[in-house]
Write a protein that binds this DNA or RNA. Sequence first.
DNA 1: CTCCAGTTGCGAATTAGTCGCAACTATGCA
DNA 2: TGCATAGTTGCGACTAATTCGCAACTGGAG
Lengths: 142, 142
Amino acid sequence: MTAQRRALIETIQEATAHLDVASLLMQAREREPRINRATVYRTVELLKGLGMIDELDLMHLNGEKHYYEVKTQQDHLHLACFECGQIIEFATPAFERLKQEIAAINQFAIQVTRLEVGGLCSSCAAKKEKRLQQEPKPGPRG
Amino acid sequence: MTAQRRALIETIQEATAHLDVASLLMQAREREPRINRATVYRTVELLKGLGMIDELDLMHLNGEKHYYEVKTQQDHLHLACFECGQIIEFATPAFERLKQEIAAINQFAIQVTRLEVGGLCSSCAAKKEKRLQQEPKPGPRG
DNA sequence: CTCCAGTTGCGAATTAGTCGCAACTATGCA
DNA sequence: TGCATAGTTGCGACTAATTCGCAACTGGAG
Ligand SMILES: [Mn+2]
Ligand SMILES: [Mn+2]
Ligand SMILES: [Zn+2]
Ligand SMILES: [Zn+2]
């Protein structure tokens, strides 16, 4: 257990947002300035393997980065709004049941699950609805 | 509708495996040699936006690429075995119900869903089980 | 047949992620 | 305490994935 790993783990655990590698590096450096980018990548792989963190795409709303978050007791899924970029987190027993069904039917020993949903949040859907009413003839780009 | 787009769409539709951009480019070139890598990226973005294809990570078992497949009537999920690399596809009404619940509770207009699961397939789980029995004291890398 | 909005190829640029290796350090042991 | 060393790190160069600007091209409407 090195100072670098401690800083990275604490940063992820106390983070309020989903962190990509660049943000993770910057924030971890506030705790421990001697951290290198390569160490972040290596540690993230390590923690993924240990099942301590999950990796997310968040629908690639902001480029091709990956995001990381602590793995908590109950898995949650992520809803990403294509319009406003908002990320909604959501957990439900139905998801837990689905995982059990997947494991049972396929005889598969689940270690990680990742459910990401893209679409429009309620307010953005409402805005788009209103726009369509005002402009009944759709333009060439919908 | 250009020859390039036609070739790319047909290639994805008739593909038997999940295609990354490099494979997609190679296979599409067999139909239409005048295709450039940039066009593949641009077309893939287009088709994603139109909801004609889905993008997958497949747990990044083979590097950081993304994979593409035609979007069919019923969404299916992907199970990736960390040991042998096998990808299992699976569809179930429970997943469809979960999506409806997500949309209803969050008032979210779903356009894309992506459920990926990582773990061990049944045969790899059995092998690991046997290995543990023969070697009761676990090594430092479990 | 003409025209042009939209698409493409090209090649360079950017960005994310990886790697080899020498220097360093946590940790178990004398 | 100090030593040995397995494992970790920083560095910097590298690879791979993706994006971009722009001039040339083309599908298809008229
Ligand atoms: Mn989250
Ligand atoms: Mn990804
Ligand atoms: Zn929104
Ligand atoms: Zn397997």
